[in-house]
Structure formats: C-alpha cells, structure tokens
Amino acid sequence: MTDTQEAHLSPETVLAEMRKNGVSHVVWLPDSETNWLYMLMKAEPTLTLIAVAREGLAFSTAAGLHVGGKTPIILIQNTGMMEAGDSMRGWGMGLNVPVVMLVGYRGWTRHGVTKDTAAVYTERFLNAFGISYYLVENDRDASRISVAFEEARRTRRPVAVLVGDEYHGFNS
C-alpha cells in the first residue's frame, strides 16, 4: 500500500463498518464528495437509502426508524448538521436516539490556518450540544466508527464521526 492509499478513507471501509454495526437505513443528504459511497450503498441489499430534503429531517426520520426497531445512520455534511441543530436537540437527543452521524468535515485541514468557517465552528457546535465525536481521516481510523456505535448504544445519544478526508477519500 502506498502512502497515498494509506491516507484515504475508502468507501468500502465505511460500508463494512455499517454492515458490522447492523445499519438498516442510511438517512442522508447527498453531497458531491460522497458519490462513490452512494454507488456502493445503493448496491448493498441490506441497506435502504432515505434521502432527506434538508438535514433537520434526518434526525426526525432517524428517530422514527429507531422507535420502529431499525438501526439508522445519518450521513450529512457539517454545514447541514449546523443547520439541523434544533432537530438534533429535539428529535435526536430529546428522544434518546442512539444514532451515529457520519459528518463530512468540510474545510478540515491539518495544515496551516483553517479558513472555512464551516470547519471552524464544527467542533464548537458539537461541544455546545455535549455530543461526543471521533475524527476519522483514513482507513486506519475506521474502527472509530464502531466505537461511535458502541457509545451511541450505551449512552442512548447521537454520536458524531467527523470524516476529515472529505475531499479525497470518497473520490479516490
């Protein structure tokens, strides 16, 4: 494996984590960076995809799925997560929904100054709600997704996985 490959989070790895944790429904708002994952999820017979019209609807829809006995995952971008704050509070935390949200970390960088305000406010936003989060940058971090699922189940709260490889991993 080359350094370049090691630096990527592959969609196959993300899908494997979903399968491992019994995900039944992916509630999501597509973005251009996750198209490869979309193709794989669409072909996966154990998954039902529910595209939402705005991210706030992801939390209420996931809550309905959970109350009905299913295991949803939410797949959105950090911009949409912030837009969905009140729904996350009311439908996610208020109904004790143990859902993992896989959040594309737009603007995230390890290098230099973070210029994108979407990234500047992402972790501050999660901290304000007291929501745990795990950064996943590449395949070597992918086991953190299972850690997030375990924590969500144990605490009966939403837990975030911040995907810090948004601009290359899913498109590799």
């Binding site: 529910i50 992801a58 209420s60 829809t61 309905g64």
Partner: peptide, 19 residues
C-alpha cells in the same frame, strides 16, 4: 409533544418504513 417544530412528518415516515 413538540420535540422540534417541523419534524413530525419525518418521524412518521421513518416509523412507517420501519413497520
């Protein structure tokens, strides 16, 4: 009650698909 305004229909859709 009113967990967060605007969400009841999404909740109901999720429940209907789950059951």
């Amino acid at each position: 009650g009113d967990p967060a305004m605007g969400g009841h229909a999404g909740f109901a859709l999720g429940l209907a698909m789950a059951m």
